[in-house]
Amino acid sequence: MKRIIIDREKCDGCLNCNIACISAHEEGSNFYTVNLQSPDAETRNFIKFDVGKGYLPIFCRHCDEPECVLSCMSGALEKDPVSGHVQYDENKCAACYMCVMNCPFGVLKPDKKNRTKVIKCDFCDDKPDGPSCVKACPKQAIVVKEVNL
């Protein structure tokens, strides 16, 4: 399975990964035009800061045993048996947010605008040129690697 591997020492907190993620989910947008002030602008990855440790990138791990999938009562969250990525189907989701409660790493969140869906990393739909965040990281703090399940 492909996973975004994090080297937190390299992260500079520039938030380009946030912008890339928002842009990847705003149809037709690019770094110049992505509307960061739109109510729909939501990043699926997060950068936290700790005085002692520095910047801490929080990205969905597409876990081997995803707690979010186990908690999902609508079938909206499923681990794709081929890609290994945990995919989310907005149309199935009941917005119960058991998954938000159950992701041990605090990756999931309700959508800001209506609280009718979950904001979750979709690995940029497994598009061939890879995740947008990874491409946008100037520090290579996040890179895609193949990991064994």
């Binding site: 520039c14 938030l15 380009n16 912008i19 890339a20 842009s23 770094f31 110049y32 992505v34 960061l36 491409k135 946008a136 990281c137 100037p138």
Partner: peptide, 11 residues
């Protein structure tokens, strides 16, 4: 080649 999105938008 990787540019800062905030810089590009001037924000």
């Amino acid at each position: 080649s990787i540019k800062c999105g905030f810089g590009l938008q001037g924000i």
